[in-house]
Design a protein around this nucleic acid. Structure first.
Length: 632
RNA sequence: GCGUUCAUAGCUCAGAUGGAUAGAGCAACAGCCUUCUAAGCUGUGGGUCGCAGGUUCGAAUCCUGCUGGACGCACCA
């Protein structure tokens, strides 16, 4: 700080502006040195020190395929979690699965009815999600002509809901539902009997469930994997959920996404019922047309249906409270499409109202499995901590044939394109090598694992495509744009890094520098190099390439501000834009200034410079969850 | 009808708290691979920043109105 002045050469006033002239050489060397020393900690900040942020994202519905629509939330949420982490926050990633609602009654009905007809159960084992999706579609086409199906579905859901709410298993309600300990891979043979004809046994003609005198013996039950008798609906639902989560995890794994917790809407349903009751007693909620509402603004918030069952909103209120109790978060982000804006503004309003009416709560002693007092105590602290991270819709999203696009197919298409590209590159390379062999300088090494590379390029293209524009704008889905690897794309960024690696490797060999770029992030080697260069400058204002070098270094120096911008706006695209500019600067430099055959000292310094560019590009791609490739 | 949101080059978008001559990529055209990866680079053309007012020394950016699109508006999530 004392020698702050040395970084400026002069100051002058020009019109309405005061211009500071920086000492470019000192500035450039300072930045390069800083990056080399701090490496992947360069540009980190501590805005969130001691603070906890929860990011609720992805949140697909179980028993439904993971489509491209969910990718946007997933990509944005995952990237935000990295960005918050980079800013010193304690970050908790939650996947809130849609595991509750009438559609499960439909699915169970369809499963029982169609199981033995033309749908193949081995298909269910091989690809449960696609199988269930087919069931769902089949149910809808058949129920048009057969209203009986809808009635059965409603009843089955009612039974499911009942058994979920009645369950005594608290861990089932509050635990991480992705736990793999109970293995549902082998379907219990009871289930076959259940599916066959049990429904007739316990449904009445009025469309109600028959009272069971002898609960454990009744036909509608099957043994779960611990041998306990549970309703068949509950069993199937758990099975569907388990299989769905397994499938989701496989996909998440592929795109480097992970969660700290998997929660389900079903978990909150029990508390939601209780919550509605409390809000009514506290006179915050009231009854209107048999339903329970909380009056606010123009559109009152509906928290219970006229039949007394809860809604999405009531479950979200309960979930937020549970999470606050558990994590004491300072901030919670819901990464959900902007079409749900009203829902979230209502949710946030509820907490505002709870805060304003704090004193109205009666302390209750008749708590059941939870501590109601502390539950409501925390409610007043939640207001202002919730944020809806909305994003625009994906328009025109369909396969080339016009159906829903499964994420995996989407990635595969991108991968195939990348494979094709790799193949033609290799051919071209071998053609060129015909010339090169005369000089025999080329080592003719092809890309190590073409399959893996293609996959990462495909994923990079797909993820980056969702993160390159501001969240708020609707994206026009266009296959040609997504599958383009040129210009402002993920592969362009990956390619820039691959180029730096390959260049450094070549120079390393040519000049015998022995710079261990492999160990850049985990060895002391670099720190030592830097320490040895304490007094030395990497670049000078008189260098022939200084203008271009400085342009890049200036941009490198802005990375920290870019990260802060991104976190304060919850906007990954700010990082994307930054990286595209950086890559463009670098590629321009690469093309215009060749390093081979220059003085060793100079080349060595430029390698250091290139490493600083690489460090920032890689940090940035990590923030976006775009895979980094050594070679392409 | 009410609410939210968007409108910048032929297309997709930057331009985020008002600042100097509004920038990229794609597409088009003209070039550049027998020295570092052409998934790249260099150049050319392309704009009444939806329209009309207002605030300001200064507006793509802020305010008002209008037009056009998207989404949402009580028992779905």
């Amino acid at each position: 700080m004392k020698d702050f002045k040395q970084y400026f050469t002069s100051v002058s006033a020009k019109g309405a502006y005061i211009n500071f002239y920086v000492n470019k050489q000192k500035f450039a060397n300072y930045i390069i040195k800083k990056i080399l020393t701090e490496k992947n900690n360069y540009a980190r900040n501590y805005l969130g020190k001691g603070k906890t942020v929860i990011i609720d994202f992805s949140s697909p519905n179980i028993a439904k395929p993971f489509g491209v629509g969910h990718l946007r939330s997933t990509a944005i949420g995952m990237s935000l979690s990295h960005i918050y982490d980079f800013c010193g926050y304690e970050t908790i990633k939650i996947n809130y699965l849609g595991d509750f609602g009438t559609q499960f009654g439909k699915l169970i009905t369809a499963f029982c009815r169609f199981k033995n007809t033309n749908l193949d159960l081995t298909e269910f084992k091989n690809d449960p999600i696609k199988f269930l999706y087919k069931l769902y579609v089949k149910f809808h086409s058949e129920s048009e002509n057969n209203p009986e199906l809808d009635a059965e579905a409603r009843l089955r859901f009612k039974k499911l809901e009942q058994s979920i709410i009645e369950t005594d298993d608290i861990s089932e309600l509050f635990g991480d539902i992705s736990d793999d300990s109970d293995n549902y891979n082998n379907i219990n043979s009871d289930v076959y009997d259940f599916c066959k004809d049990s429904f007739k046994e316990y449904s009445t003609e009025e469309g109600n469930i028959k009272e069971d005198k002898n609960k454990d013996e009744c036909k509608g039950k099957v043994a779960d994997n611990s041998g306990k008798k549970i309703f068949g609906e509950l069993y199937l639902w758990k099975l569907f959920r388990k299989l769905s989560i397994q499938e989701f995890k496989r996909i998440y794994n592929m795109i480097n996404v992970s969660f700290d917790f998997y929660e389900g809407e079903s978990q909150a349903s029990k508390i939601a019922v209780y919550l509605v009751d409390m809000l009514l007693k506290a006179k915050i909620a009231e009854i209107s047309m048999d339903a329970v509402i909380i009056p606010m603004g123009k559109t009152p918030a509906l928290i219970a249906k006229s039949d007394g069952t809860t809604l999405y909103l009531s479950r979200d209120i309960a979930t937020a409270m549970l999470r606050f109790k558990k994590f004491k978060f300072d901030k919670m982000l819901y990464v959900v499409g902007s079409e749900q804006s009203l829902h979230f503004s209502q949710l946030f309003n509820v907490f505002k109202i709870l805060k304003e009416n704090e004193i109205k709560f009666e302390k209750r002693k008749d708590t059941e499995k939870m501590d109601a007092d502390s539950f409501f105590e925390c409610a007043s602290q939640i207001s202002g901590k919730l944020h809806h991270i909305k994003f625009g819709r994906i328009i025109g999203m369909s396969t080339r044939k016009g159906n829903l696009v499964f994420l995996e197919d989407y990635i595969n298409e991108a991968k195939e394109k990348a494979q094709l590209k790799l193949k033609t590159d290799e051919q071209n390379a071998s053609n060129i090598n015909v010339y090169k062999l005369e000089n025999s300088t080329s080592d003719n090494s092809s890309v190590p694992d073409a399959d893996d590379t293609a996959l990462k390029v495909g994923i990079g293209a797909v993820i980056f495509n969702d993160l390159k524009t501001r969240r708020s704008v609707d994206v026009n889905f266009n296959w040609d744009n997504v599958l383009s690897f040129e210009g402002q794309t993920g592969p362009y960024l990956q390619y820039s890094i691959a180029r730096i690696n390959s260049l450094i490797e070549k120079l390393n060999k040519e000049y015998s520098f022995r710079i261990e770029i492999e160990n850049l992030y985990n060895s002391e080697a670099f720190s030592n190099i830097i320490a040895g260069l304490e007094k030395k400058d990497f670049c000078s204002i008189n260098d022939h390439d200084f203008k271009s070098v400085f342009e890049i270094v200036k941009h490198l120096s802005l990375f920290g501000d870019t990260v802060k911008d991104a976190v304060s706006h919850d906007e990954p695209s700010i990082i994307s834009t930054y990286l595209l500019d950086l890559a463009a600067f670098f590629n321009s430099y690469y093309q215009n200034y060749k390093l081979m055959n220059l003085e060793p000292d100079f080349v060595y310094n430029r390698i250091m410079f290139l490493i600083s560019v690489k460090v920032v590009l890689e940090s940035g791609l990590n923030l976006l969850t775009v895979p980094i490739l050594k070679k392409m």
